[in-house]
């Protein structure tokens, strides 16, 4: 299957695409700077969740596990407490998974509940196309993400030391600071280039926002490259050259697992304010993983 046959909720998109194509052919094949020459790769679908369950159901336990609690702020001074409640993570009955951040007034500070699910221990993969179609939440202190962590994080290295983070590698396919609802970031973290030194690039919508419509966030990952896409526009390629002089390239030859989460507060976004509307919902239409075929 060719990955460009993306899920279309109506045929309008197909029509528009063809119309656009036709327009391009009509205006002639000038070397228009707006047209990208994308690398030609063929993929077949190997894993997916379309979240087509009834409303109010927990995600499929054969595909997703919960990560729970606050875990000391998850290394980022985050505020939220992750639960496995369907108040925070459930399918919406119309083909989406809703990860919902809620605010409960408590003394002296409000408590924020949210959701974080992972394929850790259930599905891992080396290389391929990882994509998700998501409508994002917004507001100060809101931090949704779609990302991958090296599955060897808790394994032992040759010297019997736990490999850990960032040595295991982290690929952030999409993260958003709710104070900038038109901008997402794609990054990698590894040894010598983690946290504030991560290799990162922004992609912004000039006339829209990521919280008003669904957008498709994807990477195409192979040996010595990770290409970042929003709505099939390539905006970033990270290669070993980007980490040269900083640390090792840790993205070859070991599998990664997927995480979807909606954080509240933390070093990346600072805390929520009175201006932050709750609840906030990260609505995931699907997550699909493809294997490249030659």
């Amino acid at each position: 299957m060719n990955y460009t046959k993306i899920k279309n909720k109506n045929h309008l998109q197909v029509s528009v695409a063809i119309y656009t194509l036709l327009l391009f052919s009509l205006i002639g094949c000038s070397d228009n700077g707006n047209v990208q020459q994308l690398p030609h790769r063929n993929y077949k679908l190997v894993w997916s969740d379309e979240f087509d369950s009834v409303a109010g159901a927990s995600p499929n336990a054969n595909k997703w596990a919960f990560e729970l609690g606050n875990n000391g702020g998850w290394g980022n001074s985050e505020y939220e407490v992750y639960t496995n409640s369907t108040n925070n993570v459930s399918t919406d009955g119309t083909g989406n998974l809703a990860i919902v951040a809620t605010k409960v007034p408590t003394t002296p500070y409000a408590t924020y509940y949210s959701g974080r699910i992972t394929t850790k221990g259930l599905f891992t993969k080396t290389y391929g196309r990882f994509e998700a179609r998501i409508k994002l939440p917004y507001g100060p202190g809101i931090w949704p993400a779609f990302w991958l962590i090296g599955a060897n994080k808790d394994s032992l290295d040759a010297n019997n030391n736990i490999i850990g983070w960032p040595q295991c590698g982290e690929i952030d396919i999409m993260e958003l600071n709710g104070s900038k609802p038109s901008i997402i970031n794609g990054s990698v973290h590894g040894p010598g280039y983690s946290g504030g030194q991560a290799i990162t690039k922004s992609f912004g919508l000039t006339t829209g926002r990521f919280d008003t419509d669904f957008h498709i966030f994807a990477i195409e990952w192979g040996k010595n490259y990770i290409d970042y896409y929003v709505d099939n526009v390539l905006y970033e390629e990270i290669t070993p050259a980007n980490v040269a002089g900083k640390g090792n390239w840790v993205f070859n030859d070991h599998p990664f697992y997927i995480i979807l989460n909606l954080a509240v507060g933390g070093n990346y976004v600072t805390g929520p304010t009175d201006q932050t509307t709750f609840p906030q919902t990260m609505l995931v239409d699907y997550v699909r993983v493809y294997q490249e075929i030659q």
Partner: peptide, 8 residues
């Protein structure tokens, strides 16, 4: 309204 800065 929510502004481009994410604030209401």
């Amino acid at each position: 309204f929510n502004l481009p800065t994410g604030i209401n």
